[in-house]
Nucleic acid binder design. Structure first.
Lengths: 233, 233
DNA sequence: TATTATTGTCTCAATATGTAACAATAGATC
DNA sequence: GATCTATTGTTACATATTGAGACAATAATA
């Protein structure tokens, strides 16, 4: 196991990903916890010298989640000077046994291109990277402190996701292929952070004619069974 | 006069700006024309090693237009490999009398962070950079061919501007401090590329209660004089 | 068979938008 | 000064769209 080297990757350029999942009525994101430090950060990475930017992000997501062809939206590139703090990376590397010189490329200033991803929580197989103890889901309403400006990145991701929700009809990306109307509504509520009126929601979504209605789902509960839906391709 | 050097700027990182103006009922953008080549490109630049990304863009805009505190929106970072074509930059440099080696930093691959700007057409003083013959306004509906992927950047800028128009209420940024309702409507029509019903538009905009109504504008024409409006701060 | 929880749909009110008309008015024409 | 023209600000009415609640249907339980 070795550190990424400056000959393989573009200097000064990184990406960070805010990976959203949905489980038990809650919106969650993936965070990495670095060895020893107790520090949390967004999953991120670097761009190969001969690699498309979007490919680098897809590659990183596959390494962490096992998933391919993930829904991704690039939402902002963070390029302020105040996001540069070489001590943070130095400490993370030191905690992993890497003692590097002050001019080591990972200690340089980085611009970060930020993406959010929407994935099916159930399909994920989590795998930490070499510098991390763990990667795990955290409730969006109860995040630990994050390194550098990662909290700002999360906030802007959520803001963008909210703005895009109706426009791009991406709520379903957080659910399995087939889902009930109630589940879809819960996704919307979790993203928007507010309750939605059931009848209005159902009427609006069905009115868009983007859903296919399938068989009913019998859960064994003593009440009317809901239909299952999927998005038309 | 000399070329920017790799010791002053971050390698592999550029920005491009789609600068919108509005004049005579038409939406326009600024393009640079490079010496001899006859090639057109978006105004762009590089980020200083100790400079905020947003500052670099504001700095570039000031150099080209004379304006400060321009309204800017970052909308996408272009990072595909296929946008790399060293021959283009080589030719531009050669046309300016610069013969550079193949490993010259400006011939490297660049990621470009793209912004659109909205400015008051009347307030601009255009100034080309050292590699360009001229910088000038071009009707958005009649652009010349652009180098590299700059046409794609323009298209995405316009698309984003359209999506943001109602949400961010930025139409007025293209007009002087005070303007008539008809002028504002023409801005909206130019951006959206479609006619808008006069009464609906007026009702909607006034209903937002973001405009201040001032004195009437007497143009000498033989009809009712329109009010002047400004945006509430 | 009655009960409970939840679903799909409908109704009516409130709000927003499309469409057209009307009255007001600044200057031109006579 | 009276009339005409072009354009403006506003209103009226029809047509969606959305908010809020009610109602009937139904899967399992008692």
């Amino acid at each position: 196991m070795s550190l990424p080297t400056t000959s393989d990757f573009l200097p000064h350029i990184a990406y960070d990903s805010v990976i959203f999942g949905f489980s038990k009525g809650k919106l969650k994101i993936l965070l990495m916890e670095y060895h020893d430090t107790g520090w949390f950060a967004l999953p991120g990475g670097f761009v190969g010298k001969n690699e498309d930017l979007n490919h680098a992000v897809q590659r990183g997501l596959k390494e962490r989640t096992g998933l391919e062809n993930i829904y991704l939206d690039q939402f902002y590139t963070f390029g302020n000077l105040d996001r540069h703090d070489p001590e943070v990376m130095k400490t993370i590397l030191a905690a992993n046994g890497y003692l590097v010189k002050d001019d080591f490329w990972l200690l340089d200033r980085f611009l970060s291109i930020a993406y959010y991803a929407l994935i099916d929580y159930e399909k994920v197989t989590l795998l930490p990277d070499s510098l991390s103890d763990s990667i795990d889901w955290y409730d969006i309403d109860a995040l630990p402190d994050l390194i550098l400006d990662h909290r700002k990145i999360v906030d802007k991701a959520l803001q963008t996701l909210r703005e895009n929700l109706d426009r791009k009809l991406i709520g379903g990306k957080l659910l399995p292929e087939r889902f009930t109307m109630k589940e879809l509504q819960q996704v919307y509520e979790a993203i928007l952070g507010e309750k939605i009126r059931r009848s209005s929601f159902q009427r609006k979504i069905l009115g868009l004619e983007i859903l296919e209605r399938h068989e009913k789902l019998f859960t064994g509960k003593s009440h009317k069974a809901p239909f299952l839906y999927s998005f038309k391709e």
